[in-house]
Design a protein around this nucleic acid. Structure first.
Lengths: 341, 341
DNA sequence: GCCTTTTATGGTAGCGCTGTCATTATTCTT
DNA sequence: AAGAATAATGACAGCGCTACCATAAAAGGC
């Protein structure tokens, strides 16, 4: 006795077999039409297409993935969504992926390599075509999976290190270094530094180190730094500057780990009646729109976040197979002179 | 002659069968351990678990989805990632989903219902457990798919309408209305309005309408409005206010569709030497951190974006089946009096 | 102690699709 | 015109997993 069919299926979800039957072709031909793959005669294609439309057929990607041992998903692992940087990167990725069959699946790691590892493993169970992550530091387990997998890998933001496959980003160490050189050249000598409590933000740390190097080369060093006991925010920047200045009123410039905090610094100056640039220089990082729309544009470094995401996704699409040699793409950065330092 | 096995598979990707063999149990038992489902004796579970660890087994979710006609994916369709609102919503969703087996898959519609429809269809091919989208307006085709599917649906941001399943958000019409009432009560009479070119931002339109209603009720009306010919940004707000004032210097308050643009308005005032609040009131929408960190906090409306995302995802997880009655959750909004209007 | 219920496990048959190989009809070479 | 290449289609066997049903052993009821 034949077993009852379709107990698990939605009652009227048509399958490829239904489409093929209606179009009077074999399943595989219908499949080829759906995937636009292989040679199909125009009249046949049209018959299949109209059968698809008539039935409201939606392909089952789980079955497709299973049969072909691959998917059109692209796993994206980002440290955070609160930091505008990563939505920008995501926008770049998304832009490159529209008009392709690929879809981003996102995960947020909270800057924690162990969470990154966990999410990575769970993403791999979808057999993604590619994995995009931030930075070059991962757990050994994660690194092993990335190296052994049959998917492309892009590591974003940072290029100071050895990527698994592709790295797209800029040298944060160099950005920090150039920041120091620039500010010294503009006459600043008494440097303060604001930080936040995200210790695993490797990029911020690299910029900090680069800055210290350039100060050292000039026979200078940081006079003061303060680590705000919370995540980055405008208010964090404002409070941090107040604390820095209360202990070190001699500072003539303060560098912030990002524009959000730098804006907070400027707001503190406005509030406290400090003339920005003359009395105190303020320098940020990222080059956000809002900082540039101020009457006195923020001095900062433009990181090309959208471009990083877009370039990475485009590069990943170039070939399904991982090429033998690794690729490092430096999207660079621009110093925005601005009016605050 | 037996066909060569595994031509499509990665050479050494272990399957459930390998795990079962190593643990000395049947496949289905191993499957139950992986899914933590059904009664399993402790020693058996341990044997399977150690086999999984020994082999580095990663389940194949495509196969699982196919067999069970369902997935642990949650499709999230957002209008934009440039507008901080949506990353915030996404953070809320993500927060609710961590520690569950569900993963968000995101798509960006650019505020275009047709793109929304296209992405929705492509997402449905993954048999998602739930679909989250913004707003209550979709194409008829999309609406039909949403209504007929066997998945939960949450429509976010807006509650002025008839949801498919769950709606979580606030009444934007009412927010606009209350804005008008509040500003009238504070003595403003000559209203200007700034807009952007995203015509399909239904929420912004609803607020606009609500505002007009309250003005009308008070015997007032908008004196001037200007639609910036580009997407929302701080610079857009700055330029728009300049244009508004050049033609209508009599305005005593200008309302912006969001805080980003309102900040731009404030920057214009700073630049042009206009005393905010005394000479000109500025009112925004969203209640962003940066506006509140200013020396003169922005007058605005706090929309609870994170809460909306989190509540929606939590609600969706409550039951796999769509309940007979629809749910509308009003997360409300707060008027932030601030110092700019 | 016999019967019922619960607990723990397994056999089997697909889920819907695509890779592989095979076949036939058509066009191109020279 | 014969052979070779190409275009267009199909048969079939799985991909790796889980729903369904069955079975056996242990626990509970009176």
């Amino acid at each position: 006795m034949p077993r009852k069919r379709n107990t698990r299926r939605s009652p009227d979800m048509p399958t490829l077999a239904d489409v093929a039957r209606l179009a009077g072709v074999s399943e595989i031909t219908a499949s080829r039409v759906v995937r636009a793959q292989g040679p199909i005669a125009d009249p046949t294609r049209l018959r299949v297409l109209s059968a698809i439309a008539a039935l409201g057929y939606i392909p089952n990607r789980a079955a497709g993935s299973l049969a072909s041992a691959g998917s059109t998903l692209m796993s994206v692992l980002l440290p955070s969504l609160s930091n505008i940087v990563f939505p920008d990167v995501l926008r770049g990725i998304h832009t490159a992926l529209t008009q392709t069959a690929f879809q981003p699946v996102i995960g947020v790691t909270d800057y924690d390599p162990l969470i990154e590892e966990r999410i990575l493993i769970s993403f791999l169970s979808w057999q993604p075509a590619a994995v995009i992550l931030a930075g070059l530091h991962h757990t050994p387990v994660a690194r092993r999976y990335l190296e052994q997998g049959r998917f492309r890998v892009a590591e974003l933001m940072d290029i100071d290190g050895d990527p698994v496959d592709i790295a797209v980003g800029m040298s944060h160490r160099q950005a920090g270094y150039e920041t120091g050189r620039h500010l010294i050249q503009r006459g600043y000598r008494r440097f303060g530094y604001a930080r936040h409590n995200i210790l695993t933000d490797d990029r911020a740390s690299a910029r900090y180190e680069g800055l210290c190097t350039s100060l050292q080369e000039a026979g200078l060093s940081l006079i003061a730094e303060h680590r705000y006991p919370g995540p980055s925010s405008t208010k964090a920047g404002r409070d941090t500057l107040e604390i820095l200045l209360s202990a070190h009123s001699e500072l003539d410039v303060v560098i912030f780990p990002n524009d959000d905090m730098a804006m907070g610094g400027i707001f503190h100056c406005m509030y406290a009646g400090i003339t920005v640039r003359e009395q105190l220089g303020i320098f940020g990082f990222n080059g956000l729109d809002i900082g540039q729309a101020m009457p006195m544009p923020l001095s900062t470094i433009l990181s090309k976040r959208f471009l990083i995401g877009k370039t990475a996704a485009e590069k990943l699409l170039e070939s399904r197979e991982r090429p033998p040699e690794k690729t490092i793409i430096n999207t660079g950065f621009d110093i925005i002179e601005g009016a605050t330092a």
